[in-house]
Deep mutational scan, measured.
Amino acid sequence: MVDYIVEYDYDAVHDDELTIRVGEIIRNVKKLQEEGWLEGELNGRRGMFPDNFVKEIKR
């Protein structure tokens, strides 16, 4: 799994989504079957977030 950095703020709409803020690092990200969404861990919580608000961290 890979990590992503947040490029744009996003406020969660549903309980299974993450609220993300610019500059945060989302860890252990995986792609979901639902197009346009990823799932990852942030601040001890796992949830979904839109893939166009983040950028993969290349290592």
Rank of each mutant, 00 (worst) to 15 (best):
M1H: 08
M1G: 10
M1S: 15
D3L: 07
D3T: 09
D3Q: 09
D3F: 03
Y4K: 04
Y4T: 10
Y4V: 12
Y4I: 01
I5Y: 08
I5R: 10
I5G: 02
V6T: 06
V6I: 01
V6A: 11
V6C: 13
E7S: 08
Y8G: 13
Y8I: 15
D9S: 09
D9T: 02
D9M: 01
Y10I: 01
Y10M: 03
Y10F: 08
A12V: 00
V13S: 15
V13E: 12
V13M: 12
V13F: 06
V13N: 09
V13Y: 06
H14N: 15
D16Q: 11
D16M: 11
E17R: 03
E17A: 03
L18S: 03
L18G: 00
L18W: 03
L18F: 01
T19R: 03
T19S: 13
I20L: 13
I20N: 02
I20E: 00
I20Q: 01
I20W: 02
R21K: 07
R21W: 04
R21L: 06
R21T: 03
V22C: 06
V22E: 15
E24I: 00
E24G: 06
I25K: 12
I25R: 11
I26Q: 02
I26R: 01
I26N: 00
I26K: 00
I26A: 03
R27G: 10
R27Y: 07
N28F: 04
V29C: 09
V29W: 00
K31T: 14
K31P: 15
L32H: 13
Q33D: 15
Q33P: 14
Q33E: 13
Q33A: 12
E34D: 10
E34L: 14
E35G: 12
G36I: 03
G36D: 04
G36A: 09
W37L: 07
W37T: 06
W37M: 08
W37Y: 13
W37S: 07
L38H: 03
L38M: 14
L38D: 02
E39I: 10
E39A: 10
G40R: 01
G40H: 02
G40L: 00
G40Y: 00
N43A: 09
N43W: 03
N43I: 03
N43K: 10
G44M: 03
R45Q: 13
R45N: 09
R45H: 15
R46L: 08
R46C: 06
M48C: 13
M48I: 15
M48N: 14
M48D: 03
M48F: 09
F49H: 02
F49Q: 01
F49C: 04
P50K: 09
P50S: 06
P50Q: 05
P50L: 05
P50E: 00
D51G: 12
D51N: 15
D51W: 05
D51Q: 06
D51E: 14
D51K: 12
N52G: 10
N52R: 14
N52W: 09
N52Q: 10
V54F: 02
V54W: 00
E56S: 07
E56I: 07
E56R: 10
I57V: 13
I57P: 06
K58F: 15
R59A: 06
R59S: 14
R59V: 07
